[in-house]
């Protein structure tokens, strides 16, 4: 298997996703299977091939520097789990 449980735990930590300890083995198996399948890419001969990020290969359009938004704080904070004085609250941040 390309991955062990320890590595999967590390990835989960990087992705900030809690995985229950009893689930870690099946995540490890599934992700390993996916990575095995993906391994076929190694066979592709891609020398001198430019990567393709966006299918249409257009260029970025530019927006005029104009303020178009007004204060919508109350509306936009309706979905927020915890706010006070217009701020979003999170557990204490230590720098």
């Amino acid at each position: 298997m390309p991955l062990d449980e320890n590595q999967v735990n590390n990835i989960a930590q990087l992705a900030h996703i809690e995985i229950n300890p009893e689930d870690i083995s099946h995540y490890t198996r599934d992700i390993s299977n996916i990575l095995d399948m993906v391994k076929q890419l190694e066979q592709a001969s891609t020398t001198d091939i430019e990567p393709l990020s966006n299918p249409l290969e257009q260029i970025q359009r530019l927006r005029a520097d104009v303020v178009t938004e007004s204060n919508q704080r109350d509306k936009l904070q309706e979905n927020a789990p915890l706010t006070e004085k217009g701020l979003f609250l999170v557990p204490k941040v230590i720098e």
Binding site: L62, R63, V66, V67, E69, R73
Partner: peptide, 30 residues
Amino acid sequence: GSSTTFGAEANTQASLIDLGMPGTLPVFNE
């Protein structure tokens, strides 16, 4: 298209895009 003025009341210059609302997309300022 949110204003960049300094010193506004908290989150009054944070639009859908600035909040990263689901489905929102960026367009670059010339």
